[in-house]
Design a protein around this nucleic acid. Structure first.
Lengths: 283, 283
DNA sequence: TTTTATTGTCCGTTCGACGGACACGATAGT
DNA sequence: ACTATCGTGTCCGTCGAACGGACAATAAAA
């Protein structure tokens, strides 16, 4: 009875919500009058004045003198410039991983390449009952010794692989120095490609009892990230995991890859589904 | 007396302001816990919860499951993607023009190149007592006939000039067709470069009584925009205007140019002067 | 002149934001 | 085990900020 509109939000701050709505409206129709914003958003004129004044205090909006239009300023970039392009994939992967952990009981992660190593960016470890180690987001994984690194190297572009291996040859990290072992990298990548998934070197273990298996996430045919699965070595073998879950892993990887590709191919992320949700009608 | 804190803002909505502060804080330290945000911004924890919930409802923020950190999502781009790169220069020029109109009584404008013509993007006409026409923001100015177009063509890069003139040769616009007149463009540009400022063809007048004189705004040595000044032809000549105000015009143009250049050379607009202004201390 | 459309501001009411207080869990030190 | 410390999460009574109706002012249209 107290909820006439069915889709009432759990909570959230009213005035702040409306500021976001106005800010979004200004992004869709940059250069708008108060009345236009009133019509676009359904927020009362008086409230639009208050909101615009607030935005002006922060310098995010300026008023064009001649006309009575309000424009965004370059400072609005501050509201989103902290979000790096590289994080897209993590952002998109998160919900997919969440679903994946329900099908595959073992914990899975998302790892991306950065600074000549793979880094875990998202994890479902805490959701899996089989998690025993404490590896967390931010964990570094060496390129040639870890399953994630190998999956990436095996499926990234030829040029990228060469550059990475070149960089690694100067590294002091003991696991990185494996690149100098004759034929080591070639064998590992060959094996990875023939199976479609990678394992890590037995000398590299984040936890003594666990092992990891990883599949690549391809965007436009090249690896942009990897999807590792960690299991308890005494319970199952890598082959058993692959037999049971490889299809699911690869399907999740493909879903993430295509979603990222779709995003990147859009010219303008902002104006997709450009309608604003009017809050309520007001005068 | 009713203003105890000396720097109290005129008004603005409290909760919405604090949401903006938190959003900005998240951009500076992407991936933050509630407590970190509390410390960074000085906003109480309870309020941070409310704010983050609001941002989550809009999808601008998601919570990384494993850790207790909040991250921006790709949707935050919607809050600034409506601001085009091309608008930077307008944004930066606006305050400079405002000052300029106080020194030079005649109305000045900012015009940028777009779609094979110049377009007025900012104007101080309404501020000048000498304004008689009703030309407004958005007005199109042809490239070879208008003062603004000539100033741009004379000082843009060689390649850009060639491309523009090529495009114009196919245009149906009568003023654009002047490009076909033998030696016309060359003479106009030569004259412009020798003086440092441009005038329009006498056949092109937005208003029968006014004429225009324009100087280029250079960024990295090439024209990115122009700064036209409109005067009443019966009152003064172009030469008189130039004699009196050319220094001021060029100095304003230089100021805009260097500011834009400074902006563009920054890697990250968001993190410049990265301190957040804590609102007040709270628990 | 009247009508319509739009901008701008005032002000009394109300409801949403506020933060103190408390519960809980995890980790560290003794 | 006990205590201390730190961090997360939630409840709830109070209070002031946000709300929008109402009105003034201006300009253009009928």
């Amino acid at each position: 009875m107290d909820d006439p509109d069915a889709k009432k939000k759990a909570s959230g701050m009213r005035s702040a919500e409306r500021l976001l709505v106005v800010l979004r409206a200004l992004n869709i129709r940059n250069g708008a009058t108060v009345l236009e914003l009133n019509r676009d958003t359904g927020i009362s004129r008086q409230a639009i004045y208050r909101i615009l004044e607030t935005l002006q205090n922060f310098g995010y909006v300026r008023r064009q003198d001649a006309t009575d239009r309000f424009h965004l300023t370059h400072l609005v970039r501050r509201l989103s410039a902290g979000f790096k392009d590289e994080e897209w994939i993590t952002d998109i992967a998160a919900p997919v991983l969440e679903r994946l952990v329900k099908e595959v009981v073992w914990p899975t992660e998302l790892a991306v390449f950065s600074d000549n190593a793979m880094y875990i960016r998202e994890s479902t470890r805490w959701r899996s009952p089989f998690t025993i180690d404490r590896v967390t987001v931010g964990q570094r994984l060496p390129m040639v010794a870890s399953a994630s690194g190998r999956a990436y190297l095996a499926y990234c572009s030829e040029n990228e692989r060469k550059t990475i291996l070149d960089n690694l040859s100067a590294s002091e990290d003991p696991f990185d120095r494996l690149v100098h072992r004759k034929g080591y990298v070639e064998r590992a990548l060959e094996e990875t490609r023939s199976r479609g998934w990678a394992t890590g070197d037995e000398s590299f273990r984040l936890h003594p009892k666990t092992e990891t298996l990883a599949v690549p996430i391809l965007v436009a045919g090249e690896a942009r990230a990897v999807l590792p699965l960690t299991y308890i070595a005494s319970a199952v073998t890598a082959e058993q995991i692959a037999e049971r879950h490889l299809t699911q892993l690869q399907s999740a990887a493909r879903e993430i890859g295509t979603k990222v590709q779709m995003m990147q191919s859009r010219d303008d992320v902002a104006n997709m589904d450009a309608e604003i949700t009017p809050l309520r009608e007001a005068g």
